[in-house]
Simulated scan of single mutants.
Amino acid sequence: MNGSASPSATSSRTTRLSSGSRPLVTPSSAPSPPYSPDLNPIEQVWRAIKREVSAMFVRGYEHMIATIARAFEQLAEKKAYWEKLVKMFLSPKYASKMLSQ
């Protein structure tokens, strides 16, 4: 689109490019779903890692990477933590399959 085009010219061009009477939907104009970190399992893991890392003084990039890796490994070793996530995000049928292995 041209920066000098007026809004009315742009909207008429959009309508003209569309099929039928519906306007053309571009990725920038398409509605996006609301962001919900509580429903995203990896956000729960990152929240726990951030909690561990924020309590430490990080001396540099390499130390930060090692600290994050250590926090992740400690979480992976906590069976109660990942069992809770499996039960929270999977249906009871699949959760029981995952936890019985």
Rank of each mutant, 00 (worst) to 15 (best):
M1H: 14
M1G: 10
N2Y: 10
G3A: 12
S4G: 02
S6C: 04
S8H: 11
S8W: 07
A9Q: 15
A9M: 06
T10H: 09
S11L: 11
S12H: 09
S12Y: 14
S12V: 09
S12A: 11
R13Y: 13
R13S: 10
T15D: 14
T15N: 15
T15H: 10
R16A: 13
S18T: 03
S19F: 11
S19P: 05
G20V: 06
G20D: 11
G20Y: 01
G20A: 02
S21W: 05
S21P: 05
R22A: 14
L24T: 06
V25N: 06
V25A: 08
T26W: 10
T26A: 10
T26L: 15
T26F: 11
P31Y: 10
P31T: 11
P31G: 07
P31F: 06
S32T: 14
S32G: 09
P33K: 15
P33M: 14
P34H: 09
P34W: 05
Y35V: 13
Y35A: 07
P37E: 02
P37S: 02
P37K: 01
D38L: 09
L39V: 03
L39A: 07
L39H: 12
N40E: 13
N40L: 12
I42Y: 08
I42C: 10
V45Q: 02
W46E: 11
W46Y: 05
W46C: 00
A48E: 14
I49H: 03
I49Y: 04
I49L: 03
K50Q: 12
K50W: 04
K50P: 00
K50N: 15
R51E: 15
R51D: 15
E52G: 01
E52F: 08
V53E: 04
A55T: 07
M56E: 15
M56F: 01
V58G: 04
R59K: 14
G60E: 07
G60S: 02
Y61T: 09
Y61K: 08
E62N: 07
H63N: 11
H63W: 07
H63F: 01
H63V: 08
M64K: 12
I65H: 09
I68T: 04
I68Q: 01
A69C: 08
R70H: 13
A71E: 07
F72W: 14
F72Q: 12
E73Y: 01
E73V: 03
E73L: 01
Q74F: 00
Q74L: 08
L75R: 00
L75W: 05
A76W: 08
A76H: 07
E77K: 07
E77I: 05
K78P: 01
K78S: 12
K79E: 14
K79S: 12
A80T: 13
A80K: 12
A80H: 08
A80M: 04
W82H: 04
E83P: 04
K84N: 13
L85P: 04
M88Q: 15
F89N: 02
F89C: 02
F89T: 02
L90Q: 08
S91P: 09
P92E: 10
P92C: 06
K93D: 14
K93E: 15
Y94R: 15
Y94L: 06
Y94G: 03
Y94Q: 09
A95N: 05
K97C: 08
K97R: 15
K97S: 11
L99K: 01
S100G: 09
Q101W: 13
Q101I: 13
